[in-house]
Design a protein around this nucleic acid. Structure first.
Lengths: 288, 288, 288
DNA sequence: ATAGGTTTTGTCAAGCTTTTGTACAT
DNA sequence: ATGTACAAAAGCTTGACAAAACCTAT
C-alpha cells in the first residue's frame, strides 16, 4: 500500500461522480478530515479513488440517518480496517498445509490470494520468509521430508522467478546475485532479487552453487553497481576470503545471510543479515 | 521490441487519427511531456506508434473526468512503468485504459504481467470477468464505443485461445462448448473452456452462433461427457426448448448465463449462473 | 539476389502500373533514394520488380498518412528484414548469443518467438535440448563460463517451470519426477515433465538432488503411475541400486539419461535414453 | 453562499521554415 | 532525362488570451 494513490480527480469531477457539491466536500474535509486530497502545484485538490470510496460510504451512512460527524467517523474507520480477507499469518499455515501435501493447485491458490491482497514486500516478509524459516526448522527436526521441502521449494522458486521475469530491464543500477559454490538454496537470494527489482534495480541472476571466480569474471563483464553473495550457512564461505576480497576491491560487495559478520569484516564487504526486504530497502536507499 | 519502433507520423496525421488538434498536441508535449517525438532534419515532429497510444490513453482518462495534468501522468505511467506486480484490481483499470485506447502492445503487456504474477484461475476470476462485466455496463451506458469493445474483445479472444491451445488433448472427460444461434459473444464460453481445460478436461469448442441442431449432431459424434451452452442473454434461448431437451436427453447438459433458470428447469438442464472458474470447478468436482 | 533481376520496366510503364507520375517517381529517386533503376545503353531508367514493389509499399504508407520522407524509409526497410519466421536452428544460435551475454530480455524474446511459431514439443526437441547439449559441450571445452551456464539455466528453468504451472491438475495418470542426490541439473527432467504434462499426465515434481529414500516415501504417499529418475551422468546412480530396486518393485520405474542401461537392467527399471519428447511420447503411449 | 483572486487548459495569431508534388526550360 | 524552380500545404516557435474551474476567506 505504499504505492502511488492514483487516479487524481479534481473536486468538480468528484462532485459529479458522488453528487456532493464541491462546497460540501470541502466542508467535510475541514470539519471531519474525511478527505485528505493531494494538491497540484497550483493548489488544486486532487482526490484518490480511496477518497471517492469514502465519500460514497459517508453518503450511505447519511441516508441511514446517522449524524454527519458520526457518519464521517464510520466512513473513515471502514477504510482503516478494510483488512484483506485473510491475514498473512493465516495464509502461512495454509501454505504449509497444501505444499506439504504435494498439492500444487492449492499452493498456487494461496499465493494468488496473498499477492492479490498484499504488497509483494509484505508477502515476502510475512509469508514466504517465515514459511521458509519454518519449514527449515521442521526439516531439522525431521518433521518434514526432503521431498516435501523440495516440492515446496520448487513450486515457490517457479512462482518467484515468474515474478522476476523482466527484472533485468530498465535503467536503474544493476545488482549481480549469486550463491557461492556448495550453497544450493537460492530462494532467499531470489526473494532479495524480487524485492530489489521492485525498487528499480536491474538484476543479473546467477543463482545457486556459483564458484566465486566466475562471479568475479562476470562482474568485470556486466559491471554491476553491487554484487550480492548470499548463503544460508557461513560454512559455504570458508576458504574463499581471497576471492571475496577481490570482489570487494572492485565492487560494492554485500554478504547476505546469518553468521557472515566475521567474513564480511575480514574482506571488506557490507553485511546484510536481516530479511530480504529490509536488505533491498537498505541497498536501494544508499543508491548512487 | 524489434517491431516498428518508428512509423513516424507528422503532427497533422496524428491529429487526424486521434481527433486532437495539432495545437493541443504541442501543448501536451510542452506542458506535460506527454509526447517525445523525433524530429525530421528540418525540425518537423515525427511521432511513433507509442506516442499515438499515449495520446489515446490520455483521451480515455480525460473522458473519465481526470484532469489533464493527471491524465497525462497516468497515460505515461503505463508505458514507462514496468513495475512487476500490482493487484488484479489495479491491473483491471489499466487493462481498460490501454485496450480502450486501442493500444495493442499495452494490452498484451498488462496480460503478461497478470499471468506472470497470478495463476490463470485468478486472472480469469479477478481480472477478465470483472473487466468484461465492466465494459459491458459502460457500453450499455454509451461510455464505450462499439469499436473499443470490438478491439478489446478480439485481443482478449486471441490471447485466450492461445492459452487454450491443445485443450483437446489428454485423458480427461470431454466437454462440448457452444453458444446458440444469434449469440455472438463467446468470451465467457472461452473463459469457461480455459478454466475447465486447466482441470484436465478436454474441450471441443464450437464457439459463437452455433445452431443447436449442429450441436446435437456433434454431440452424437464426439460423445462428450458434458455439453455446455452459454448465453449472455436468455433471449437467445427462445424457441429452442425442444432442441435443448434433446440434448439434455442424451447428455449432461449445462446452461450457463444469467436468466436461464426458467429454461434450464423446463428442459432438464443444469444451471450455471456464476463465474466461469466456479462453474468449471463445480463441473470438475462432479466428474465421472 | 540471383533472382529475376529482369522485368525491366521503363518509367512510363512503371508510372502506368503504379499510378505515380514519372516526374514524381524521379523525385522520389532523387530525394529519398527509393528507387535504383538500371540504365539502358541510351540512358533510360529500367526498373526491377523490387522497385515496383517498393513504390507500392510507399503508396500504402502514404495513404496511411505517413509523411513522404518517412514512407520512403519504411518502404525500403520492409524489404530488408522481410524474414517472417526463423527456423529453430537459427533461433538456437540466437539464444546462445543473448544468454551468454547475460541478456535476459533477449532470452525471453527468443523463447517468445519460438513458442509463437512452433509447438512446445518442437521447441523442446529442436531448440532447448540442442542448446543445452551445446552449452554443455562448450562448457566442457571451457568456452563457456560457469556463470554463463548458470544464467542460462536459471532463465530457462524459470521459463519452463512457468510453462509447467498447473501440471498437477487433471485426470491423467501421475508421474513422480526427481533427480537423485548429487545430481544438480534438473532441466532435462523439467523438459520431460512439460512434454509429459502436454500429453495429459499429472506431474509431481521433486527436482534436483533428492535422496531416493525420500522419493520412495513420497511414492507411497502420492501413488504415482510412474516414477522417473533422471541423471546427466550415471555416476549419480552409484550405490543406490537397492533403493532403485525398491522403487521398481512397487512402481513403474523409469531411468532417464545416458549411460544408465546397466543400472536399469540391474534394478528392473525401464531405460529412457533418448530426448525428453520421445520419452514422454513413449510413456504416454503405453499409458494405463 | 458570495466575493475576489488564482490556476488550468484549450485555442489562436504572427511570422518564418520545411516538405513535396508539379511545371518548365535545357 | 535532368535540373531547377515554384507554390501550396503543413509545420515550427513564441506569446498571449479567455473561459472554466478552483482557491480562500468572509
Amino acid at each position: 500500500m505504499n504505492q502511488r494513490e492514483e487516479g487524481h480527480l479534481r473536486i468538480g469531477e468528484l462532485s459529479q461522480r458522488t453528487g456532493i457539491s464541491p462546497e460540501l466536500l470541502r466542508a467535510w474535509e475541514r470539519r471531519y478530515g474525511l478527505l485528505r486530497p493531494a494538491r497540484s502545484s497550483g493548489g488544486f485538490r486532487l482526490y484518490s479513488a480511496a477518497d471517492e470510496a469514502r465519500v460514497r460510504r459517508m453518503k450511505v451512512h447519511l441516508t441511514q440517518g446517522v449524524a454527519a460527524a458520526e457518519a464521517a467517523r464510520l466512513a473513515q474507520r471502514t477504510t482503516a480496517d478494510e483488512s484483506p480477507t485473510r491475514s498473512l499469518a493465516l495464509l502461512r499455515s495454509e501454505l504449509g498445509g497444501v505444499l506439504e501435501a504435494f498439492d500444487e493447485a492449492g499452493g498456487h491458490r494461496v499465493i494468488d490470494v496473498a499477492l492479490d491482497s498484499f504488497s509483494i514486500d509484505a508477502v515476502i516478509s510475512d509469508l514466504l520468509v517465515p514459511y521458509l524459516d519454518d519449514i527449515g526448522e521442521r526439516w531439522a527436526r525431521n518433521e518434514v521430508t526432503v521431498a516435501q521441502e523440495h516440492f515446496a521449494s520448487n513450486l515457490l522458486r517457479a512462482r518467484l522467478l515468474a515474478l522476476g521475469r523482466g527484472w533485468d530491464a530498465g535503467y536503474g543500477p544493476r545488482a549481480l546475485l549469486a550463491c557461492p559454490e556448495g550453497e544450493l538454496h537460492d530462494l532467499g537470494l531470489i526473494l532479495f532479487g524480487v524485492a530489489l527489482a521492485r525498487r528499480g534495480w536491474r538484476i543479473t541472476f546467477l543463482g545457486a552453487n556459483t564458484p566465486l571466480h566466475t562471479v568475479i569474471a562476470t562482474a568485470r563483464d556486466v559491471r554491476p553497481d553491487a554484487v550480492v553473495i548470499a548463503v544460508t550457512d557461513p560454512i559455504y564461505l570458508t576458504g574463499v576470503n581471497d576471492e571475496l576480497a577481490v570482489l570487494a576491491g572492485s565492487n560494492q560487495l554485500i554478504l547476505a545471510g546469518r553468521g557472515t559478520d566475521g567474513t564480511a569484516a575480514a574482506v571488506g564487504a557490507e553485511l546484510f543479515d536481516t530479511d530480504p526486504v529490509s536488505g533491498a530497502e537498505r541497498l536501494a536507499a544508499a543508491a548512487p
